[in-house]
Design a protein around this nucleic acid. Structure first.
Lengths: 250, 250
DNA sequence: GTTGGGCTAATGTCCTGACAACCGTAGCAA
DNA sequence: TTGCTACGGTTGTCAGGACATTAGCCCAAC
């Protein structure tokens, strides 16, 4: 039941811009899809026609489309055409989302720094980050609150040569923002998620009860060159927190 | 410290094969990397040289490299070159892994089917899958064991028009294998992971104790056209199970 | 009614060629 | 010694073309 006449989205291209043409096309299409100008399920123009209409080559248009297919916004079927994917599947995966999804809620996130020191990397941390044992790392202990309710206890380890950490900066903007500001772009993260019951110490830190269910996560984040940038070991009040994310096949 | 003379991996190409050239190159390179012929950190030949040596065009070689960069096996830096990524970051994300990672262990997985029936889709299930409420779906309840130890209780819902389910098939090969055999290729999955304490019923099913920490997961899986294929609501003994996976940025 | 062939339209693969942008380094000049 | 510049090497972008492969449809033949 897709429309027989594919809509012709308005695509503005600036050939003088340093932004690559394929990326400009992709963004224009993305906007048209998000705005509903190209409704889910409808067909996109075929590559040849689109290329001609925009006055550029087919490979460039193909690359733009491939980019959007890769993030799940479009679906291509050989011999058939290209369709706009359903909104359900459109969400991109964000590395930071596991961390900072709070700020997208209406709740006000806040982190209190319990401790910040420079220590030789413990074995487990060094191994995860791929650095030598004993190399100096920052060790940070924080409690995360949302609306005065304690949510999580977070332990982070960052090699000192990555960036400089201060209590003020950590409480102001959060660790991942600081990494980004230092020019470190995260590429992938290895995660382990589990659960356990709260010990007395856990409970006291979180203001919870002994035996309450906790959600635990260990994560190692790598930058684009594969260098280990941060190792974290956290636990969350299960009654107040859950992880939500998309996994892509392959 | 990368080698000044990049190694020249043996790459066998069959131009008569229906397998795309870029994919043949990518697989050859992948084998060379996995085997250690191309050690982590070493530099790859530059695109031009590689293309000439293989007797094919630069775009084809570029596509092969892009494929491997995308799955984290290679790291490219403009103006510098292409390096083999560290093994830590090399593992691809597998949708099935959250399900079937047990078989990669030495432990013997086994699922017992407690119930299999055809029911009208409950609201939550229909909403997750993007189908109309009341549409017929299979409802499966299973217990997963590993070495006679109960691990998880799994509830799955699959639209009946996707494939035919039987108790025998489910106990023989597992749901995801059945979906694959039916020609359904999973594309992405939305997941929510949380934790809670076991109720009396939970404990009885799992052979655990009331109040034990449980790891919970709800997942909706979509095929390549964005069609909802399976919804699952599971809980695991936290002492025996954890989720491990890689997240890629973007 | 069913099957099979052929046509059409669309995406998939691959080629050649050209230029741009970027990184590191070597060399030169202040 | 320090800082700037120029250059070589490498990946990034884009054009235009050719042919292959696939899915869906219509229609003829059985």
């Amino acid at each position: 039941m897709s429309s027989a006449h594919p809509a012709l989205p308005a695509i503005s291209i600036d050939r003088a811009s340093p932004i690559p043409l394929y990326y400009q096309i992709a963004q224009s299409l993305e906007r048209a899809i998000e705005s509903g100008e190209l409704p889910a399920g409808s067909r996109l123009e075929n590559e040849i026609a689109l290329a001609q209409r925009l006055g550029m080559s087919r490979p460039t248009v193909r690359r733009a489309i491939a980019y959007l297919v890769d993030r799940g916004m479009l679906v291509r079927k050989r011999g058939v055409g290209t369709q706009i994917a359903s909104p359900k599947v459109r969400r991109p995966i964000e590395l930071t989302s596991l961390y900072d999804d709070l700020s997208q809620d209406h709740r006000q996130p806040y982190s209190r720094v319990l401790g910040l020191e420079e220590i030789p990397a413990p074995d487990a941390v060094a191994h995860a980050l791929g650095i030598d044992e004993g190399q100096p790392v920052y060790a940070v202990e924080r409690i995360r609150y949302a609306d005065d309710e304690s949510l999580a206890v977070m332990h982070n380890f960052v090699p000192v040569n990555i960036l400089e950490l201060t209590v003020e900066a950590l409480e102001r903007t959060g660790l991942y923002r600081l990494l980004g500001d230092a020019g470190i772009r995260l590429h992938m993260a290895s995660q382990v998620i589990g659960a356990r019951s709260a010990t007395g110490t856990d409970a006291r830190l979180l203001g919870a009860n002994r035996g309450d269910a906790l959600l635990t996560m260990q994560r190692t984040a790598f930058d684009q060159s594969g260098r280990g940038v941060e190792y974290g070991d956290h636990f969350y009040r299960a009654s107040a927190y859950s992880f939500e994310f998309l996994l892509m096949a392959r």
